[in-house]
Every structure is written in structure tokens, then in C-alpha cells.
Write a protein that binds this DNA or RNA. Structure first.
Ligand SMILES: [Zn+2]
Ligand SMILES: [Zn+2]
Ligand SMILES: [Zn+2]
Ligand SMILES: [Zn+2]
Length: 264
DNA sequence: CTGGGGATGGGGCCC
DNA sequence: AGGGCCCCATCCCCA
């Protein structure tokens, strides 16, 4: 129920961000509310289920600017050197340069769990399941196998996903342990910056503003999506009717609702 | 019903 | 090696 946390304060737009709320990042915390179901589900994502090739959006921008032949389906590959990225960078420069963090105060390093080495995995497990005794420890223990090419494979004990690096696995495990907890509402997140973005929903801080219309956003990605609305040529095109859309989700809606547009 | 905003999850890259 | 940050993908809602 993400929306339930939406606390906008239109009458108090310039309220100073309560950065003290960030201190609670990744501290011990006992879940007392039934956890958001969607959140739990998201914590165990079967990536293969998430529309593998259902969508084949044509990024008009990219196809225009990157003449090389490549599968349209992969047109969403990150192209950091593309003009698109350049524009984003330039506009975000107005705010805070390259950093997505607003003028950030000296953020206290979350120390309670971020000790390095594999022991941090266990620490996080205990944080996430304070009442489960030894179980988390076992769950968090790494299972290292080897694939046919004799590379190490790290399995997540929560969902059995495989990773080729310990770092990747550790990062993933955070999505189970959710060590970063908002003191305002108790919602937990896998990473500090995710919590930080969430805290903005409490503070109303919107560090990313559109240079075209002065509208501000709390999230850079949402600003990016907004920028599309200023563009004549939208990134996502329906292959059947050639209509373009600013968002993948809109293209999906269009296709699922039956594209009536004649072929061309 | 469509478009757009809000919120959030995760992988990847860079320092 | 790990933390931070970036970008993408989605889902949910509302005007
Ligand atoms: Zn897992
Ligand atoms: Zn909160
Ligand atoms: Zn704008
Ligand atoms: Zn169409």
C-alpha cells in the first residue's frame, strides 16, 4: 500500500527535509505491521515471469540516433553516452549535478549492519527476523556451488536465485532482509537510497525539477518520464499503428486494449 | 479511457 | 570489494 504513505503537503512545499529521519537507515527494527503483500511478493521476484519479450518497444530516439543494427527488443539498453542521457544530465545539473541526492547533510553511516564480509549477511538476517533465533543464520549462510565452467555460483537461501558474484548476492539478499527502516512509518527497504526516496514522501522534498515547466519531482526517474511529455516524439512506438507513447506502460495499455490502428 | 504522476524494486556501473 | 548512484521497469491511481 505505497499510496497510503503518500503525504503531500501542498501548503508547505518548502518544508525542510527532516534528514534526521535518515539516521534510522538500517537499524534494528521489529515489524509490527502486516507487511505489504505486494512488497513481500516483490521480494521474491521470478524475473522470468516479468514479461520476457512481451514488449518490443521501439525507442525512436535510439533508433534515430543509433543507426547501428540491433534488436529492437533490446533498445532499452542503457546508453549513457546518448544525447538522451546528456539532456538528463544537463537538466539535473540544475539541481545537484550528477548526484541524485539532494544537498545532502553528512549522512551518518549506517553502521549497525554494514560491516563487511559475509557476517553482514547474517547480521541483516537477524535484523529482519529478530524473533526467529538461529534460523536466520542458517538461511543466510551462503551456498557456494560451481557451475559446469567451474565458476562459483552463489545461491540465495531465501529464494534460491543464483548469482555469479558474492556482491550481487549480498545485494540481492537485502531485498529479503530489508534492513533500512523508516522511523516515520515503519516501512522497510532494501537499500538506503530507496529509503531516502521514500522519506521524501514524508518530507515533500522534490529535488528534481523540470527545466521546461518548473514542475518538481522527488524521483529522478519520474522526472525523466515527465520529460517525455514535453517531447513531440515519444520513445515507445506501437509496431502496429505507429502511435508513440511516453511510457512503456502506456504502450502496453494501448496494445492490451486492442490496437485498432490499421497497419501501415 | 488515456496520459501522466507517485512510489518502489532491482541490476549494473563507477569510483 | 563495496557503497552510491544511475537507469529501467512496473504498478497503482487519479484527473
Ligand atoms: Zn533471494
Ligand atoms: Zn516512511
Ligand atoms: Zn516539465
Ligand atoms: Zn497500436
Amino acid at each position: 500500500m505505497p499510496r497510503s504513505f503518500l503525504v503531500r503537503k501542498p501548503s508547505d512545499p518548502r518544508r525542510k527535509p527532516n534528514y534526521s529521519e535518515l539516521q534510522d537507515a538500517c537499524v534494528e527494527f521489529t515489524f509490527q505491521q502486516p507487511y505489504d503483500q505486494a512488497h513481500l511478493l516483490a521480494a521474491i521476484p521470478p524475473p522470468e515471469v516479468l514479461n520476457p519479450a512481451a514488449s518490443l518497444p521501439t525507442l525512436i530516439w535510439d533508433s534515430l540516433l543509433v543507426p547501428q543494427v540491433r534488436p529492437v527488443a533490446w533498445a532499452t539498453l542503457p546508453l549513457r553516452e546518448s544525447p538522451k542521457a546528456a539532456e538528463l544530465t544537463s537538466l539535473s545539473d540544475e539541481d545537484s549535478g550528477k548526484s541524485s541526492q539532494p544537498p545532502s547533510p553528512p549522512s551518518p553511516a549506517p553502521s549497525s549492519f554494514s560491516s563487511t564480509s559475509a557476517s553482514s549477511l547474517e547480521a541483516e538476517a537477524f535484523i529482519a527476523f529478530p524473533g526467529l533465533g538461529q534460523l536466520p543464520k542458517q538461511l543466510a549462510r551462503l551456498s557456494v556451488a560451481k557451475d559446469p565452467q567451474s565458476r562459483k555460483i552463489f545461491n540465495c537461501k531465501y529464494c534460491n536465485k543464483e548469482y555469479l558474484s558474492l556482491g550481487a548476492l549480498k545485494m540481492h539478499i537485502r531485498s529479503h532482509t530489508l534492513p533500512c527502516v523508516c522511523t516515520t512509518c515503519g516501512k522497510a527497504f532494501s537499500r538506503p537510497w530507496l529509503l531516502q526516496g521514500h522519506v521524501r514522501t514524508h518530507t515533500g522534498e522534490k529535488p528534481f525539477s523540470c527545466s521546461h515547466c518548473n514542475r518538481a519531482f522527488a524521483d529522478r526517474s519520474n522526472l525523466r518520464a515527465h520529460l517525455q511529455t514535453h517531447s513531440d516524439v515519444k520513445r515507445y512506438q506501437c509496431q502496429a499503428c505507429a502511435r508513440t507513447f511516453s511510457r512503456m506502460s502506456l504502450l502496453h495499455k494501448h496494445q492490451e486494449s486492442g490496437c485498432s490502428g490499421g497497419p501501415r
